[in-house]
Amino acid sequence: MSEPAVEVHNLAKSFRKSSGAARSGGAGARPAARGLFRRKPRAAPVKVLDVPSLDVRPGEIFGVLGPNGSGKSTLIRIISTLLLPDEGQVRVFGRDVVREPLAVQRMLNRVSADAAFFRKLSAMENLIHTARLYGLAQREGAARAREILSRLDLSREKMDAEMHELSRGMQQKVALARAFLTSPILMLLDEPTTGLDLKSKREVQTFILEIRRDHGATVLLTTHDMVEAEALCDRIAVIDEGRIRACGSAAELKIAAREKVAAPSGAEPTLEAAFLALTGRTMEDAEQEKENPA
């Protein structure tokens, strides 16, 4: 059996977050001196990720489905060596993300919801810069960048325009090209279609499927879009409050949901219903709770 693309064991991550109670001096907050020199109470650590075990198989599109603030991006950041875990171990094709960061970095690339670039540089200049960082020659990098951008329907004129002149959808296509340019065997896609119009969203989703079909790359996709998760992913992990509640194909999750809660009038449960059954709340409720904690 081949080595897992991503292997997670007993992963935990906490952050110190200032709570509303501490800010308002409510219950639990330490009495503080009044006035200009009031000492800010030290916030208690909050566990944002707690994953005992998770495996992503090579070549699969693995979805991590959860509301905003559920720990999806934290997981992606740990895998991409941008965040150090407090406990546990994460391996990418057998390489430890903490002990062998350079080896891990060579194997992966990432696209996030905010397509960040040097705005005054053109798409091509940004991509050639990335190509060089990953050891490609300027000519090779430029040729590959043009090829990928053409595949993503970006005109030559747009390729040479400064990034701030491009629409959000176009910027996201350049972000995908930047990640794909370096031929990663693991693509980390952190809500890559968030905020895109329907056309751009479809184009990005088609490209993700192409990456897997033509290049056999493993894709780890985080999303809070149920339809997207169901359409793209071979397996989905449902994550809520930093914990994986269930993992399986969309069909398996629906079956698990049916066993927990009967669908109304015996209808086939949706992924939305599965999320509700597995977490005890809808995606909207979870996001609202995160935005307005009690």
Partner: peptide, 12 residues
């Protein structure tokens, strides 16, 4: 620019 994470995750 928001590029810091991309630079810090490059194998450099």
């Amino acid at each position: 620019e928001g590029t810091i994470e991309y630079t810090f995750m490059a194998p450099v």
